[in-house]
Design a protein around this nucleic acid. Structure first.
Lengths: 182, 182
DNA sequence: CTCAGAAATGTTATAAGGTAACATCGTGCG
DNA sequence: CGCACGATGTTACCTTATAACATTTCTGAG
């Protein structure tokens, strides 16, 4: 028996997708290895520049997050790590914390999951579209959006540190596939 | 021993506030009982009109959510309920689900907690300012914000069902109190 | 070089949030 | 009546996340 009760349903693969229509759409449309490589080399550059230590473990976790464009749960990552080494939850959560601080990943609060960020150099407050069916995510440019929020916050004397914008709904693919029922 | 391990730290009071500066600011500035009464009578009106059943339990949970303007955790509510009756998590979660469907409360994904909504009649996609220190929340009017999101989503063919906008930072009070360190 | 302090990681245990599945109750209606 | 349906009760369990403390690794000052 594995420690920490990695469930059978999670063991042995990277992602669960509840969507019956999911066909790895994103991943099938491009060579995802290139995405991963780009993300990792960018991460290394950014960290070097900042004097942040992208250790092998942190690098590995980042790589695992980037395996897909879908959000990945911390325990999914843990399960993968455990194929390679002894690992416990704090190992994963510490790496995720570091990566978040560096803007290399974002946490999606509505899914308790993490996605890689392709633009860690821009201090963007990012917004995401999230398909409730296939879980694919798509970052939004939140410029005007942020300024609108900033204006309202300032009026109230509120000092913004961070913002979460997650838009849930159906992506074009899942709409075509006839997914309904909210 | 209570079932479901209600922790000592939660038992016996409604809210935890990590903020050392918190002085029930909101609640001290107004007669909060009026807030609660208003919210409950509005809830009853709205439910009657819709043919939704605001049962005594659901009403009681709504009342508990409204005890404060801070977000309340499901297990905080459970602990309160258990002072009055035998209760298990599903009891609370079912009530919370119902209340959410009716727009009577909102869930704050970044805190795993719930706040009462004063305007259940408007089908607003609400945004919140949340103080990371005292946890007080303040709803934002998200009009322009929503239209900006809607425009971008439409361009991508994404069908919006729901949206989460949570802005984290420091409220004026906590800024004055000299809270720092992000 | 070396050793002290800081940063990172290991390890154990447990907290906190949430749900599945099935039993029971109550009530209104044909 | 009796059954269909919504609401609630009950048990068990799953998922996500963190506290607390031990150990290792790195780094820079002397």
């Amino acid at each position: 028996m594995l420690p920490y009760n990695i469930s059978e349903s999670t063991k042995g693969r990277m992602k669960t997708t509840s969507c019956p229509h999911k066909k790895n759409s994103h991943t099938s449309q491009h060579d995802h290895n290139i995405c991963i490589e780009k993300a990792l080399s960018k991460a290394e550059a950014v960290c070097r520049q900042r004097g942040a230590r992208l250790t092998p473990q942190r690098r590995r976790v980042l790589e695992l997050v980037w395996q897909t464009h879908e959000p990945v749960g911390a325990y999914d990552i843990l399960a993968e790590l455990q194929k390679e080494m002894r690992a416990a939850p704090p190992t994963v959560y510490r790496a995720l914390d570091f990566l978040q601080q560096q803007g290399l990943i974002h946490r999606l609060a509505s899914l308790n999951a993490y996605v890689g960020c392709a633009t860690p150099d821009r201090a963007d407050k990012v917004a995401y579209l999230i398909c409730r069916c296939c879980k694919e995510t798509s970052p939004l440019a939140p410029q005007n959006l942020s300024s609108e929020i900033a204006a309202q916050a300032e009026r109230k004397g509120f000092q913004i540190e961070n913002q979460i914008v997650e838009v849930l709904g159906l992506c074009p693919t899942c709409q075509q596939e006839g997914v309904v029922d909210e």
